[in-house]
Each structure stands twice: as structure tokens, then as C-alpha cells.
Design a protein around this nucleic acid. Structure first.
Length: 569
RNA sequence: CGGGGCGUAGCGCAGUCUGGCUAGCGCACCUGCCUUGGGAGCAGGGGGUCGGAGGUUCAAAUCCUCUCGCCCCGACCA
């Protein structure tokens, strides 16, 4: 491709509303263009990069035995009502009516559609297993899109769905996808980590996320320094204590203190001169299984997914002011376990606590010297808080958890029969018995992979594309386009590289060399061949490697082979 | 949805508080000269009606009301 005719308009300055490097650089490198909040066009250079990522994904998916399909972006409400998610999915599902008043939605994911296809087409165990995937535009009406295509509303996703006759088969399918994902992200040159994850509204019972490690990531990962355990914050467990008995309390009674207007943990600490660790936070939750009080140490945070499990409920949210007053007899900020008659679930972290400060269930009063074992009847002790740095590993002995940030680029789920049961996707087994198909689903955020790669591979001069996803692995840069010798040699190298299968750019713009160098750096081309009169006199050109910055002088006759050897991975 | 910030040319910004000449600067773009190994220089030029609507005023980018959009923090959500 000739830069003189390419639709590429780079920017010198950072656009104002870009925060993270990948967003800034994708805009500056003329890869994307915003149309509305969370909705982007891909310009030629960005699309080319996207296609490279897709190519890697396709190759590995096909190699793993999956077959490509393409499903509609617009989906009728009908299938969503069948699966039961029409009423569950919430505002992220963008709904609308067609001219006849029929209800439709823009697909945020395709479990319903694929399940309806497979249930019509598959009737026998002989048709299974099967794995179908697509690469397609999804729409999720995110409450707050941000960071460019990292978290956009419209985005490109590869989603695959596996169908098996039994759990053993489903396990194999899951495993095959897990391995394919490891190959995909490795080939893209990413530093990543698979972690155990919560399943969220997609459902199912087991899942892993693939996280690209980056300080700007929105997800927090906890991983053990000693063994291979790693999990998303929402899922991360904490080592189970040896005993679930509360610490024995001495004789005595809590002492009431006047704490006017003091509500938050910080305020209480400041007012009473204690630390957050000395406090017990009492959070009142409304659930489909009644009201519960969650007790955690003042410096810990409740993990709602864990609390749901412990409380045995499906839905759960922090109680509103009125509910709190009704059950604690005090406004928000003064709840405590002593004398509280609702179900109380205490966190492991409180097992060896004593002499705590808690709310008094009375406006403007707290209690000092509270011992859970003595003063409050706790119904259950469980793991209900977020893990944090320094916590003990749940899988090995002696390991501690560290926290790092990551960008979720892939997610694999075991769905079981959630959808096949709801939507009647079944098959006849060898014995002629009708059984539900066991499903799995596997997503990769294609556009997010691109953003994550740039997040991981950039420097002060711009993008540093890894070769496998570089839109163009090589750029030929003639220092002067008016020098016929220089231009002729540049053209020759450019043509030869292209004819030998290397996507190559040539900067044939009538611009000063400095401008060309800056642009080549900005757009992140891995190898730059500089052709100038100086070098030609010695019979050489210069090849600069973007990632290391090293420059080598290569004889004219060898430069094509030199590049081929570096670019064909 | 709550809090904060911002909409002036393709991009980055000044001007707004304290209304008043033809709305300005840098980058990008066009023409010419000159220059050609890390964002050159000179000269000339095109492009905006100040997010939108209404109002106040002799006069509105500037003041008032409404409205739309964008960004950040949070809540929410994968």
C-alpha cells in the first residue's frame, strides 16, 4: 500500500477525550473514529489490524474443530422469552419494535439463536459433538462506555458454542477451547493469564477468563505467588480457616458511646481513635430469601456473589433507607449485630476478632467492646468478602495472594443444560432416550484484543505492534522521492516483499524524512526499511526494528530475505 | 441514575467572568518558492456563525431559560 493514497490521517496531539494509551494511539494512528458514545468506525489501518487478529482466531478455531457460521445481529424477542432472559437481561439489551410492532433486540450474545438453530437441526447423538462459532458485531448498551474500543457498546466478538452428549464430552470441548485460547493469545504476542471467574448473567456453573495483564485494566486479578491459582476478584476465594468457632470472649458487656452524626468507617475511626480493623461493618441486604445482615471487618469489602451463595438467594441488593430503619431501628450508619433479630452472616475475617466497635442500632450511638461470640448470635460464618493482597491462597498451603490488573479478552463457560433445557434442544441417545444437549460457550472480544495489545505494546513514540497482528509488518521509507535512484530501489524492495506475501507499506509521500519517521513509529510498523542516497552509495539500506530500536545496515540484495525471516512467524 | 467538567474549523486550544470592530492562534489542508536522514522555513490561501432552540438587549460566542451531545468519578452491569 502506498501511503500517498492511503486513507490515513495521523494526529500529532492527543484527542482530548481519550484517557488510556490504546485509545489515544488508536485515534492518533487513524485506526478508529468515534460516531457516538461507545460506537466506533474502523478506518483502513484499524480494520487491517482487526483482520489480522481475526485471522489468528479463525485459524485456531478451525484447527480446534469448530465451524464458522454467521448469525443475525437483530434477534426477535421470542427466543429471549423462551430462554427466560428477556426479563432478566436488563437495560444492556437494546430493544426496539419493527414496523409491525414486533419486539426485537440487538444481540449482545447469541446463546438463544444458536440453541434454536441446533435444536432444529440436531436430533441424534450421531450429530454430536459439534462446535459452531462466528465473528460478529455485538451490541451491549453499557451504562458507561469508556476507553475507546476497550469498553464500547458496539464491538466485535468471536463467540463459539459447543454441543455435547454428556458432561465428559462437554469437558473435552471446554478443554479444547481453553487450549485454543491459550494458542490464540500467545500468537497475538500477549502477556495473559487464565483465571477462574464468576459466570454472571450468561449463566452456567464453571468458567475461566483470559486476562491480558495491564495496569489500566478494569478487572482485578488475585493470583497466588506460590501455586498456579488465579481468579477474578469476584470469584477469588480465601483460604478456609482451621476452625469456624468464634474467639472466646471474656466476661463483660458492650459499652454504648455517643457518636452524633458519625456513620462511615472513616468517621467512626476518627471519632473513637480506633483503626478500621477494630470495626465490624454491618450491611443490610434485601434478598429474594428475606433480609440478611452481612458482617465484615471494617477494612474489608463484601463480595455480593459470595454472599448470594452463603445466603442461598438468587437476587440481592443493599437495602434502602426505609428497610434499614425498619429492621435496625436506626438510620443508615448505625447498624450492628448486637440485638439485631434478622439473619446474620459473618465473614471468616471476624473469627478471631474481639473487642470490636459496631453500630448500636440506635441513631447517633455505637457500641465498644463488642465480642461476637458473647454479644451477638451469628447464624452463619462464611467467606463473604473480597479477597485482597496478602490473603492466604485457598489452594496451597503457605501461598499468599497478590493483586494485579487485567483486561478481560476471553471468557470460556460451561453452560450445562441451562439453554438446551429452556429451549428444548435435545437428542436421542444410543438407547433411544431423549436427553438435553450439554452446552458450552466461548467468547473473545476481538476489538478488545486489539486495544489490549496496544495497551501492552506502546512507547512514548506510539504503537509497537507485535508482528502477528501488525496491519503491515514492514514499511519501506525512501528518504527522498525526487531522487530516482532512491525511489527506484525503494519501489523494487516494496514490490518484491508484497509479491512474496508480506503486507508492505511504502511511504511515497513528498514529505520531509522526519515526518515519515515519526509516522512510521506512531503507527507501529514492526520493521522499517530506510532507503537513502547515503546508504545506496555503500550498497545498503537500513532496517530498524520498532520493538528494540536497533538499526542494521543490510546489503541491497539481502534485505528482502532478511525481512522475510523476521516476519514469517 | 447521582456528582463534576466540557461543547468555538478535521485535531488541540484562546476569547465567555466584565456583551461592542470583519471571531483568533497552533497543527492539519491548498498554491508557490525553498528544503530533504527524526514532526524545516518564507509568502499567499480555503474552511467555523461559536452544539441546538427560545429569550433579554441598540448589540450576544459572551447574559437568562430550556434542550441535545461528549468526557470523568460513582452507582450499575460483564
Amino acid at each position: 500500500m502506498k501511503l500517498s493514497s492511503m486513507f490515513l490521517h495521523t494526529l500529532k496531539e492527543d484527542p482530548r477525550d481519550a484517557e488510556v494509551v490504546s485509545h489515544k494511539l488508536m485515534l492518533r494512528a487513524s485506526m478508529i473514529k468515534k460516531l457516538a458514545s461507545g460506537i466506533y468506525s474502523y478506518l483502513p489501518y484499524g480494520l487491517k489490524a482487526l483482520k489480522k487478529v481475526e485471522k489468528v482466531i479463525r485459524e485456531e478455531m478451525n484447527a480446534a474443530g469448530a465451524q464458522e457460521v454467521l448469525m443475525p445481529a437483530v434477534q426477535p424477542a421470542e427466543v429471549w422469552k423462551e430462554s427466560g432472559r428477556w426479563n432478566v437481561y436488563g437495560k444492556e439489551l437494546l430493544r426496539f419494535l419493527d414496523r409491525k410492532g414486533g419486539e426485537f433486540a440487538l444481540g449482545p450474545t447469541h446463546e438463544e439463536v444458536i440453541t434454536s438453530i441446533v435444536r432444529d437441526e440436531v436430533h441424534s447423538y450421531r450429530d454430536l459433538p459439534v462446535n459452531l462459532y462466528q465473528i460478529q458485531t455485538k451490541f451491549r448498551d453499557e451504562i458507561r462506555p469508556r476507553f475507546g474500543v476497550m469498553r464500547s457498546r458496539e464491538f466485535i466478538m468471536k463467540d463459539a458454542y459447543s454441543f455435547d452428549i454428556d458432561d465428559q464430552g462437554a469437558e473435552k470441548s471446554y478443554d479444547a477451547m481453553f487450549k485454543a485460547y491459550e494458542r490464540i493469545f500467545s500468537r497475538c504476542g500477549l502477556r495473559f493469564k487464565p483465571v477462574e471467574a464468576d459466570t454472571g448473567p450468561i449463566g452456567g456453573n464453571y468458567s475461566h477468563e483470559f486476562m491480558v495483564l495491564a495496569s489500566t485494566g478494569e478487572d482485578i486479578i488475585l493470583s497466588c505467588g506460590k501455586c498456579s491459582y488465579a481468579a477474578n476478584l469476584e470469584k477469588a476465594e480465601i483460604a478456609k480457616p482451621e476452625s469456624l468457632d468464634l474467639k472466646q470472649a471474656p466476661e463483660g458487656a458492650p459499652e454504648k458511646v455517643h457518636t452524633p452524626g458519625v456513620r462511615t468507617v472513616e468517621e467512626v475511626c476518627g471519632f473513637l481513635g480506633v483503626t478500621a480493623k477494630d470495626l465490624i461493618k454491618t450491611l443490610i441486604y434485601s434478598t429474594d430469601n428475606g433480609i440478611v445482615a452481612a458482617l465484615v471487618r471494617g477494612d474489608h469489602d463484601v463480595n455480593e456473589a459470595k454472599l448470594k451463595r452463603a445466603a442461598g438467594c438468587e437476587t440481592l441488593e443493599l437495602a434502602d433507607e426505609g428497610t434499614i430503619e425498619k429492621f435496625t431501628k436506626a438510620p443508615r450508619g448505625f447498624a450492628g449485630p448486637v440485638g439485631l433479630s434478622i439473619k446474620k452472616i459473618a465473614d471468616f475475617g471476624l473469627l478471631d476478632a474481639g473487642q470490636n466497635v459496631t453500630g448500636a442500632n440506635e441513631e447517633d450511638y455505637h457500641l465498644k467492646n463488642v465480642w461476637l461470640a458473647r454479644d451477638a448470635k451469628v447464624d452463619l460464618v462464611a467467606d463473604i468478602r473480597n479477597a485482597q493482597e496478602g490473603d492466604l491462597c485457598p489452594r496451597c498451603s503457605g501461598g499468599t495472594l497478590g493483586a494485579i490488573r487485567g483486561i478481560e479478552v476471553g471468557h470460556v463457560f460451561k453452560l450445562g443444560i441451562k439453554y438446551s433445557k429452556a429451549m428444548n434442544a435435545s437428542y436421542l441417545d444410543v438407547n433411544g432416550d431423549l436427553k438435553p444437549i450439554i452446552m458450552g460457550c466461548y467468547g473473545i472480544g476481538v476489538s478488545r484484543v486489539l486495544a489490549a495489545a496496544i495497551e501492552q505494546y506502546a512507547d512514548e513514540n506510539g504503537i509497537v505492534f507485535p508482528v502477528p497482528i501488525a496491519p503491515y509488518p514492514v514499511i519501506v521509507l525512501p528518504v527522498s522521492i525526487t531522487d530516482e535512484k532512491v525511489m527506484g530501489e525503494a519501489k523494487r524492495i516494496y514490490d518484491e516483499l508484497n509479491s512474496r506475501g508480506v503486507d508492505t507499506l511504502i511511504d511515497d509521500r513528498d514529505a520531509r524524512p522526519g515526518v515519515k519517521f515519526m509516522d512510521a513509529d506512531l503507527i507501529g510498523v514492526p520493521y522499517r526499511i530506510t532507503v537513502g542516497a547515503r546508504g545506496l552509495n555503500e550498497g545498503v539500506v537500513e532496517v530498524k526494528e520498532r520493538s528494540s530500536g536497533t538499526v542494521e545496515k543490510i546489503p541491497l540484495g539481502e534485505v528482502v530475505d532478511y525481512c522475510l525471516a523476521r516476519v514469517n512467524v
